[in-house]
Design a protein around this nucleic acid. Structure first.
Lengths: 340, 340
DNA sequence: AGCAACCTAGACAACGTTGTCTCACCGGGG
DNA sequence: CCCCGGTGAGACAACGTTGTCTAGGTTGCT
């Protein structure tokens, strides 16, 4: 049961062959006597020998073919899509991805990075922790390729993949204005978050460009939960202070929808980040969608290129977002169906 | 840049200390001269030395503290929740989880298992592939603990964690009957799938128990996509053949909802498997929910216990499902709100 | 004071694999 | 017949780490 697994030596002995010949066979060398090869294959089958990659990888210059990924929560659809996309590219290149969740805990984040380095991963893809996104990368001497996704770090010279948060918000806000809204409210989370700052910046580009000078009174950045967002939107509805809502993240969007339901009437709405339920609701919710799969692909290809010795040229890569209009941006709901 | 990372030897030389003393320090031995310990700590800091776990783990009897997980798709919320839950338990025990997606591809499934064994994981948690769920486990000689989740395999002696598919469906069907439905339709995917067979069995327990003898005419097991499910439900609605719908998986539930929308009227509905949008729709969709987190927890604890030498007693573990009633099971919709 | 028991440091071999190198062999050309 | 180049097999050391064992020092007891 708990017997020591067979080694190359065992195979070599069983096949009456030199150890190195087994090594060559296992590594797919072509110049092997077919007779010996057959004996080796038989011995491997008989012993159920498995190549020990951990042992093979300790040789200097020999890579582990492992890539590490540190995200906040694998159960979050945004991150699981990212991980899936990275995994796909890695596996195409013969690499295995190790995805770790840190729960936005700065300490655990560091622990996971250390553990992955200890496992001798060939490269690291990291979403910086929400609080204190910089410290972990600041002093570190990176002997392996590092790519940072979703949020930037201050440490210089690190490959960074970002979504165009500002541009997406700009497009969404412009659409709401185009639909006739003079007073577009911005509902979002704390400005400590890079993405929130960017999204607010995009919003302001439009609002200030149109000289509406309402941004300050209509900007709410304390909505950490859907309920808080809901309360804010509810009070806007009651006092009739806004003509449209831009919800700067998922939770704010859900909160706005709840407020609409509670108040019994709605405002034009666009949210940042797509979500599964968005097209199923009535009206279907328009969103600024990030191309998470593409972000993952670029991150993976960057880290793999670097791991294979090629130095990627671009240091910071900003991927476009897409404005997905489904109906909720309009003043009036046209259809009567309550489900798409 | 691509310099060889420092080894314990380098640390020992820098600290003017024996190699083994560094090993003891790194492994947290207590009986070390504080003076030497301080010198070692300094040297580690100066060289940015990282413990090489791959090298450490090649010693026989020394474990890699790695657990492998093979699922079909990390981006699927069901599996990402499972992975997250397993990851949590693993990390509590100091283990790292390697989650791999096989895309329901039998060949890739085998490849991933082989690769994980080659990495010398201490244990393996596997969701058998949809097609041909048995072959991969049949002849294999498992030197490491193996736990199978979600679908059973025929090979004997393998720890198995399942949800109570039949029981959950039984409860849901009974509820629909209790609400007054004489003709409950069963919409689901192919009976090649274990879960479908189980769910249908649960459905039949109620339908045949109530002697309605309608199961055959109201059982549809060819709905592979939401569209196909939608077509089936649409035709049931048009011909007024059913009083209620049991949708045996997510896609069938979505399909039924689309059919309701297209037809302009609905039937009482309960679906198997919860989904994010379910509570947001109107009426909120009632479902049979699996406790995926608990399945992951049990699977992880089983494999970890086995990896640590304890033989778990139970071989097959069936976890209860939960009937979540949100409104869609009723004949009439009471509320008027279109969003929870 | 003398001796035993204990403790820590480090030398050494081993882990399973691969890189290097040597040797044996085979065929062909001089 | 001999030599030479080419090919494939295996002996050997090395990779970075840990288990074992010994040496030496210190403490405590008689």
């Amino acid at each position: 049961m708990q017997a020591r697994p067979p080694t190359m030596n065992d195979v070599a002995a069983t096949a009456s062959v030199g150890l190195k010949t087994v090594s060559r066979f296992v590594n797919g060398a072509t110049n092997i006597d077919p007779v010996l090869a057959a004996r080796i294959a038989l011995a491997i089958e008989a012993l159920d020998y498995r190549h020990n990659l951990a042992a093979a990888s300790i040789r200097p210059g020999r890579s582990s073919k492992l890539i590490g990924l540190v995200i906040s929560d694998l159960a979050n659809p945004y991150y699981s899509s990212l991980a899936r996309s990275i995994e796909r590219v890695c596996s195409e290149h013969g690499y295995l991805l190790m995805s770790m969740s840190c729960d936005e805990d700065t300490e655990r984040h560091q622990l996971l990075i250390d553990r992955l380095i200890a496992q001798r991963v060939d490269g690291l893809i990291v979403v910086p922790p929400r609080d204190d996104p910089n410290a972990w990368a600041d002093g570190a001497r990176w002997r392996i390729p590092l790519v940072v996704v979703d949020r930037p770090v201050t440490a210089p010279g690190i490959h960074t993949i970002l979504a165009d948060n500002a541009g997406g918000t700009e497009a969404a806000t412009a659409e709401l204005v185009r639909q006739g809204a003079a007073r577009v409210a911005f509902i979002g989370d704390s400005l400590k978050l890079y993405t929130m700052r960017e999204r607010l910046a995009g919003y302001r580009r439009i609002i200030e460009h149109d000289d509406l000078r309402l941004s300050a009174r209509l900007t709410f950045t304390g909505a950490h939960t859907a309920d808080q967002a809901s309360d804010i939107v509810l009070s806007l509805l009651e006092k009739n202070l806004a003509d449209a809502i831009f919800a700067a993240n998922n939770r704010s969007t859900i909160g706005a929808l709840r407020a609409f339901a509670r108040a019994g009437h709605r405002l034009p709405l666009i949210g940042f980040d797509d979500f599964e339920a968005a097209p199923l609701l009535n009206p279907a919710v328009s969103v600024v969608a990030q191309d998470v799969a593409e972000m993952g692909r670029v991150a993976a290809e960057t880290v793999l290129a670097a791991a294979q010795g090629l130095a990627p040229l671009v240091e910071t890569h900003v991927l476009p977002t897409r404005l997905v209009l489904r109906g909720s941006e309009a003043k009036e709901i046209s259809g009567t169906e309550w489900l798409e």
